[in-house]
Amino acid sequence: QCIKQELICKWIDPEQLSNPKKSCNKTFSTMHELVTHVSVEHVGGP
């Protein structure tokens, strides 16, 4: 049986000017979605 898990993006953008810096905190249900999000939204490139 599949256990529902919540994956949370903890990326902190080093360019943020606010202190304390905020992490992204978007939630995902699969590791694939999380990896895709980080690749596209934070790292950039294909």
Rank of each mutant, 00 (worst) to 15 (best):
1 Q>N: 14
1 Q>E: 10
1 Q>D: 14
1 Q>R: 07
1 Q>G: 07
1 Q>K: 04
1 Q>W: 05
1 Q>H: 09
2 C>Q: 13
2 C>F: 08
2 C>M: 15
3 I>A: 03
3 I>T: 12
4 K>S: 07
4 K>A: 08
4 K>Q: 04
4 K>H: 01
4 K>C: 04
4 K>P: 07
5 Q>M: 02
5 Q>D: 15
5 Q>K: 12
5 Q>N: 11
6 E>Y: 02
6 E>A: 05
6 E>I: 00
7 L>H: 14
7 L>W: 07
7 L>V: 12
7 L>D: 05
7 L>S: 08
7 L>P: 14
7 L>N: 14
7 L>R: 12
7 L>Y: 08
8 I>Q: 13
8 I>D: 15
8 I>A: 14
9 C>K: 04
9 C>N: 02
9 C>S: 01
9 C>W: 00
9 C>M: 01
9 C>H: 00
10 K>I: 04
10 K>L: 06
10 K>C: 08
10 K>R: 11
10 K>V: 04
10 K>H: 14
11 W>Q: 14
11 W>P: 05
11 W>S: 07
11 W>E: 13
11 W>T: 04
11 W>V: 09
12 I>P: 11
12 I>W: 08
13 D>R: 04
13 D>T: 01
13 D>E: 07
13 D>C: 08
13 D>G: 05
13 D>Q: 04
13 D>V: 04
13 D>Y: 14
14 P>G: 07
14 P>T: 05
15 E>I: 12
15 E>L: 13
15 E>Y: 08
15 E>A: 12
15 E>W: 07
15 E>Q: 04
16 Q>S: 12
16 Q>G: 06
16 Q>M: 06
16 Q>Y: 07
16 Q>P: 06
16 Q>T: 10
17 L>I: 12
17 L>S: 09
17 L>G: 05
17 L>T: 11
18 S>K: 14
18 S>L: 08
18 S>W: 06
19 N>E: 11
19 N>M: 10
19 N>G: 06
20 P>E: 10
20 P>R: 04
20 P>T: 03
21 K>H: 11
21 K>G: 09
21 K>P: 11
21 K>I: 08
21 K>L: 09
21 K>N: 15
21 K>E: 12
22 K>R: 13
22 K>H: 11
22 K>G: 09
23 S>A: 15
23 S>N: 14
23 S>P: 12
23 S>T: 14
23 S>F: 13
24 C>Q: 01
24 C>V: 01
24 C>I: 00
24 C>W: 01
24 C>P: 01
25 N>W: 04
25 N>F: 03
25 N>R: 14
27 T>A: 09
27 T>K: 14
27 T>G: 13
27 T>N: 11
27 T>M: 14
28 F>L: 02
28 F>Q: 02
28 F>R: 01
28 F>N: 00
28 F>W: 00
29 S>K: 11
30 T>A: 13
30 T>R: 04
30 T>D: 10
30 T>I: 06
30 T>F: 06
30 T>V: 04
31 M>D: 15
31 M>N: 15
31 M>L: 05
31 M>T: 11
32 H>C: 08
32 H>S: 11
32 H>G: 10
33 E>N: 02
33 E>P: 01
33 E>G: 08
33 E>Q: 10
33 E>W: 00
33 E>T: 00
33 E>C: 01
33 E>K: 03
33 E>L: 02
33 E>R: 02
34 L>I: 01
34 L>M: 12
34 L>W: 10
35 V>W: 14
35 V>K: 15
35 V>Q: 15
35 V>E: 15
35 V>F: 12
35 V>D: 15
36 T>Q: 12
37 H>C: 00
37 H>W: 00
37 H>I: 00
37 H>P: 01
38 V>G: 09
38 V>P: 04
38 V>L: 08
39 S>V: 05
39 S>P: 02
39 S>T: 10
39 S>E: 15
39 S>K: 13
39 S>H: 07
39 S>Y: 01
40 V>L: 05
40 V>C: 04
40 V>M: 12
40 V>H: 08
40 V>F: 03
41 E>R: 05
41 E>D: 09
41 E>V: 09
41 E>N: 10
42 H>F: 00
42 H>M: 03
42 H>P: 00
42 H>L: 00
42 H>C: 00
42 H>I: 01
42 H>W: 02
42 H>N: 00
43 V>N: 14
43 V>K: 12
43 V>A: 12
43 V>S: 15
43 V>E: 15
44 G>W: 09
44 G>L: 03
44 G>Y: 05
44 G>S: 09
44 G>P: 07
44 G>V: 06
44 G>A: 11
44 G>I: 05
45 G>P: 07
45 G>T: 09
45 G>A: 11
45 G>L: 08
45 G>W: 03
45 G>C: 10
46 P>D: 11
46 P>R: 07
46 P>G: 06
46 P>V: 05
